[in-house]
Amino acid sequence: MSNESVHDIQQIMAMLPHRYPFLLVDRVLEIESGVRIKAYKNITFNEPFFQGHFPGRPIMPGVLIMEALAQAGGLFVIKTLDLAKDDKLFLFTGIESAKFRRPVVPGDQLVLEAQVVRHKLNIWKMQGRASVDGETAAEGVFSAAIVDKGDK
């Protein structure tokens, strides 16, 4: 199991199908293949969701924090299994025990950490934690399935 470090936005875009405004990982800091990932998303006032959530008090929606964790998890699985972006999708199948601990606001750097809880066939279950300055912003257990792009 290799321990790989920094992946920049170009490398992330080569692995994930997401694009603006829904690509929610800016950089991968560490991947320990088969074990865990650490990445981040820089939160700026220019994020499109801040126009409506909330005018005068911009707060990143919790569901998008969970999506950012899932994308980090997807990057982890793609690197662990050495999958090609064009062949497979990593789709959410569930979220358990989601907790939101503090607001995420413009200027924050959201650190995304996920580790494997269980993996069987094409289903992955991970424990995720998103934090700002070491303080937990959100956490939860999420599961996802790897499917062929042609599957429905």
Rank of each mutant, 00 (worst) to 15 (best):
Q115F: 04
R101C: 07
V77A: 13
K99W: 07
L75S: 01
K88M: 04
D87V: 12
G74Y: 02
L81P: 00
L75V: 04
L112R: 08
G74K: 01
V111F: 14
F92S: 09
F76M: 14
V77R: 02
R101H: 11
P103K: 09
A114C: 15
D82C: 08
G74L: 00
S97C: 00
F92C: 10
R101W: 02
F76W: 14
V111K: 06
P103Q: 10
I78T: 15
L81Y: 10
L112T: 13
I95W: 04
A72V: 10
V116P: 02
Q115E: 12
K88N: 08
A114P: 09
G107N: 06
D87M: 06
F90P: 02
Q109R: 15
F90R: 02
D86P: 00
V116R: 06
G74N: 00
D87E: 15
L89T: 12
L110K: 08
E113I: 10
P106Q: 09
K99A: 11
V116I: 15
E113T: 14
K88Q: 04
D86T: 08
T93M: 11
S97D: 12
I78H: 05
V111N: 12
A72F: 06
I78W: 03
G73V: 07
E96G: 01
R102Q: 15
A114H: 05
V105R: 14
A114E: 11
R101N: 04
E96W: 02
I78L: 03
A98R: 05
T80A: 07
V105W: 02
L89V: 15
E113R: 10
G94F: 01
V116Y: 05
P103G: 11
L75M: 00
K88F: 14
F100H: 09
S97R: 13
L83D: 10
T93W: 00
V104A: 08
D86Y: 00
V77F: 08
T80L: 02
E96Q: 13
S97A: 09
R102G: 08
G73M: 04
L81S: 01
T93I: 15
V77D: 03
V111W: 12
I78R: 05
T80V: 08
D87G: 05
D108Y: 07
G74P: 01
R101A: 05
G107L: 04
K79M: 10
K79S: 13
G73Q: 03
L91R: 03
G74Q: 00
